[in-house]
Design a protein around this nucleic acid. Structure first.
Length: 267
DNA sequence: CAGGATGTTGGGTC
DNA sequence: CGACCCAACATCCT
């Protein structure tokens, strides 16, 4: 599930449940997902810290802890891969089989659930380590202005969907958000960036803004019938706007849906 | 049983 | 260097 809107929902969830609570200990039912330390190392760093206000950049969640030293407490860096999510539960509530890491707090526990272990959990002792862990990221898609997008696309080659999905180009856009945005902007996903004019880029930005606005407020990309994403659940998908049967294919090496009528190959 | 899934990385190619 | 493609990772579902 996790694209920008999902991870933003996890961030809010963390604020709602864990921020301010003191960590008593960390348990790792499956230590595989701890990427740069051991369960003991993570436990030692986090023990007796309190969760502070978390941040999100793209699809990365930064679970800050309160400052004990001038430089602040350590940060747990989380990436959810394709199947991760957070849950907050009472100590007595049975754990799910895919709860891989558990931060046992004073009043409950924060569980990191990842069915497929494509994501991970990292420990960053200092701020400069956070950037090393995430690697280079573009501007967060939710913070991207129209002029930012114009400037970025000016120096970019290749296809537009590939650009949107490149986390170094813009951070946070995944397969669903990309398809939904391009459909809303009436731009074929395989079109070259060089072939887009100012109006296209304006539409693209407006579409991205709208898709993120709605998706962030719902905590995920809406699966309602007026959205392209709904097509992924349906047998013979049709365009919610014009009822034309949708096309399905591979663009930027990902399964892609588009409307051949609304999103022509060439402008 | 094969193939695919909302993600990233590393390798090879042009 | 920029961009593309694929395989791999781990697990479940159709």
């Amino acid at each position: 599930m996790p694209e920008l809107p999902d991870v933003e929902a996890f961030r809010r969830y963390l604020v709602e449940h864990a921020t301010g609570h003191r960590i008593e200990r960390v348990t790792a039912p499956d230590a595989d997902v701890i990427r740069n330390t051991t369960p003991q190392g993570l436990g030692r760093a986090m023990k007796h810290r309190r969760f502070a206000e978390p941040e999100r950049h793209g699809k990365w969640l930064l679970a800050r802890t309160e400052a004990a030293a001038p430089r602040g407490g350590p940060t747990v860096v989380l990436h959810f891969g394709m199947t991760g999510y957070l849950s907050w539960a009472g100590h007595d509530e049975p754990r799910h089989e895919h709860d891989r890491i558990v931060f046992v707090c004073d009043a409950g526990e924060l569980r990191v659930n990842m069915m497929r272990k494509l994501g991970g959990v990292w420990l960053a002792s200092h701020e400069d380590e956070v950037a090393e862990i995430t690697g280079p990221l573009g501007l967060d898609a939710w913070e991207l202005g129209r002029e930012d997008l114009e400037d970025l696309l000016e120096n970019r080659g290749g296809g537009i969907k590939a650009a949107l999905m490149d986390q170094q180009f813009v951070a946070g856009v995944g397969n669903l958000v990309a398809d939904e945005t391009l459909w809303r902007a009436r731009i074929h996903p395989a079109r070259g960036v060089a072939d887009l004019d100012r109006d296209d880029i304006g539409s693209l930005h407006a579409a991205l803004w709208h898709v993120l606005e709605e998706s962030v407020s719902q905590g995920h990309v809406p699966r309602q019938e007026s959205w392209l994403t709904h097509a992924r659940d349906v047998d013979e998908p049709r365009c919610p706007r014009c009822d034309t049967p949708l096309e399905k294919g591979s663009v930027a090496s990902r399964t892609t849906y588009w409307c051949p009528s609304c999103q022509p190959e060439l402008k």
